[in-house]
Every structure is written in C-alpha cells, then in structure tokens.
Amino acid sequence: MNSEVCQLKELEVEHFEIREVLRCILHTILFHRALGLVRPKDVDLELFEITYVQCGDVELDRKIDDKIDQFIDRVEKHPNKKNQICLSFYEVKNKQATWFTNKVERLYWEQWYINLNVAQHPKGHFGKSHHSKVVVDRGDTAADERSARRAALEASLRDVLFQIIRFVNEKKDHVPPIPNLEGVSFPYEITISSSSDSAFGMDMFKRMLQTGHPTMLS
C-alpha cells in the first residue's frame, strides 16, 4: 500500500491565532477523509474571512480540540521551536500475535504535516507588537501592520486549504476502500512535534520499529 505525505505550507501565526488556524486545517483534512455518512457543518472563522467545513462529529471535534490544547501547551513550554502537527491516517490490520509484535498493526497510508511558526510575543500583551520599539509607535501604524499581517495570514491559510483540496484531488488511489465505518472517518492520529526536538526522531524510530514504516509495507 502506498503512503502519501503532504507537507502543508508553513504559516506564520501569532499565539492567539493558533487555535483557529489549526481547527480550520485539521477539520478540512478530516472532512476529506471522513467518508462515512456525514452532515457537513459550515464554520466561519472568527479571525478570518474564511468558511471551513466540519463533518459534524462530536467525538472528532473533541479530539481535535484536545490535540490543539496540547499543541498550544507545547508552544508555551518550548517557545523557540518550529512546531509541527502530523495527522496520520491508518488502517488497522489484525495480525497474529507473535513474540515481538503487538496484535494490532497500524498501516499508515497518509500523513499530513501542518507547519506553524508561532511568532514570539510577550504573552498576553496584545498591545505590543513585533518590535520592542512599538511602545513609541503610533497606534495607527501598529494597527496597519497588524491588519496587513492578518490579511497575509488569511491568504496563506486559504492557500493551504487549496493545497489540501488539490492533494485530495490528485491522490485518490491510495485511499483504502471505504470500510463500514463505525465512526465517520478512517482511523487517524494526531501527533505533535517540534522540528528541533530530538525526541521526535526517536519517537518516529520507535514507531517504525513497532509498526514498520508505511513505505516499507507496500
């Protein structure tokens, strides 16, 4: 089985924008992978003039929010790292238990990497902007700067959404047959990592040992 990887364009976000941006992206991906019967739900972003679609599954919604909480937590603890969220879809294969492996094997068939670069600000001081000289800045220019930055982020976010759409469109063959899904979506997991985090590599390595690397399976 093929495994496809999609690296989404990096986004420069501020701390308070993380949640919306991640929600928007994660839900959009999951909507494309929730091939069970869904009743879509439109959601307008609060910070941007963008409407995205959720598949209207409470459990999924909650899981995403939990992961975003984790991510924000991590950003606060390790402010100086580029952070990445990986959304992986897998199939579960039951394998005969042996001495070395778990009974259940996960076959990853798709991975999405969401790359966020969180701008560093003194937390909670929204009045201050990128530079320490802002204190001297006129309110006007600071606001202009802010809205320009916001508009740029909105455009980038839109690009990312179209990137998702294109990917979904171009790569259809690797998507497994639709099972009789209990939930709406294929099984998935969301992992958080920082690029400069050495534990991340270790983690991946361990996972490869456990499950076999996706590409090795095909």
Binding site: L35, R158, V175, P177
Partner: peptide, 21 residues
C-alpha cells in the same frame, strides 16, 4: 469512492471561492 472524494472537495471549494462571500 473517488466521486465521494471529489464531492467532498467540491463542498469545501464552493465555500472558499469569492462568490461565497
């Protein structure tokens, strides 16, 4: 299956195009 996928992305796309505003 592919039609489902295509329709999913159509559903998302119509909401991203300018006319949706």
């Amino acid at each position: 299956k592919k039609s489902i996928l295509l329709l999913r992305s159509l559903y998302v796309t119509v909401r991203l195009l300018p006319a949706y505003k």
